[in-house]
Simulated scan of single mutants.
Amino acid sequence: MFRAGVRASLDPALVTVVGEADDVESAVARVHELRPPVVLLDVHLPGGNGGGGAEVIQRCADVLGEVRFLALSVSDAAEDVVAVIRAGARGYVTKAISGPDLSAAVGQVAGGDAVFSPRLAGFVLDAFGTGAGDVAVHDDELDRLSAREQEVMRLIARGYTYREVASELFISIKTVETHVSAVLRKLQLSSRHELTRWAAQRRLL
């Protein structure tokens, strides 16, 4: 029932569903058989050795360069987020996400970006292993960004969608896109995934 709901919520103009699985074993088999660009993965998928989505990713390590995983869960518990991110997931969203935002998230992960539901930034920091003694903020790098660009950078690095950033800062989505392009260019980064890592290493989230 849940899979049917997710499938119905996805925009067919943006996302093509090529297969489904209802447990760890069948998920691993389907991933190796179909090699989809993105796997939308239930964190608590039953079966296997009880490792859920993280186990699927670990058992598909040989195709991680070809297949990207986006975790989906009702849980925003730290242990769930950290487990799948460390296993190799490129994003983590909760089941409260809307259909349009989920479709957009799949596209972003396919394009190489990292996508996280808002307010999961602390768990992402843990997943990246950033501790209190790690890299300090480099003022010269931050100084390249305007105050507004820094605001946008922090929200994007926390996993906010362009629409959520626009709503938070009361600006248009087009303006958000312009700021993100400027931030990536000034910091010499190529994707949101790199931006999240950059911000996490500097404890800016």
Rank of each mutant, 00 (worst) to 15 (best):
S73L: 07
S73P: 02
S73V: 09
S73Y: 05
S73Q: 08
V74C: 04
V74Q: 14
S75E: 15
S75D: 15
S75C: 08
S75L: 08
S75Q: 10
D76T: 12
D76F: 09
D76L: 10
D76R: 15
D76K: 14
A77C: 01
A77I: 03
A77D: 13
A77F: 12
A77N: 12
A78F: 00
A78H: 01
E79I: 01
E79S: 14
E79N: 10
E79W: 00
D80E: 13
D80Y: 04
D80S: 15
V81W: 02
V81M: 01
V81N: 00
V82T: 11
V82D: 04
A83I: 00
A83S: 15
V84P: 09
V84C: 06
V84I: 12
I85Y: 11
I85D: 00
I85V: 09
R86P: 06
R86I: 03
R86W: 02
A87K: 12
A87T: 11
A87N: 10
G88K: 13
G88W: 13
G88C: 14
G88A: 14
A89C: 14
A89P: 03
A89F: 07
R90E: 03
R90P: 00
R90T: 01
R90C: 02
R90A: 03
G91T: 04
G91D: 03
Y92V: 09
Y92R: 05
Y92C: 04
V93F: 01
V93K: 02
V93G: 00
V93M: 07
T94R: 13
T94N: 08
T94H: 03
K95L: 12
K95H: 12
K95I: 13
K95Y: 12
K95E: 15
K95V: 10
A96P: 00
A96H: 07
A96W: 00
I97C: 03
I97S: 06
I97N: 06
S98H: 05
S98F: 08
S98N: 04
S98T: 15
S98Y: 03
S98V: 03
S98C: 04
S98P: 02
S98W: 06
S98E: 12
G99R: 14
G99K: 13
P100C: 02
P100V: 02
D101G: 01
D101R: 14
D101F: 00
L102C: 07
L102P: 03
S103A: 08
S103E: 06
A104E: 10
A104P: 00
A104L: 14
A105F: 08
A105E: 04
A105S: 15
A105Y: 04
A105V: 09
V106N: 04
V106Y: 04
V106E: 07
G107S: 09
G107F: 10
G107P: 02
G107T: 06
Q108M: 14
V109P: 14
V109N: 11
V109M: 13
A110G: 07
A110K: 13
A110W: 05
G111P: 04
G112Q: 12
D113Y: 04
D113H: 15
D113F: 05
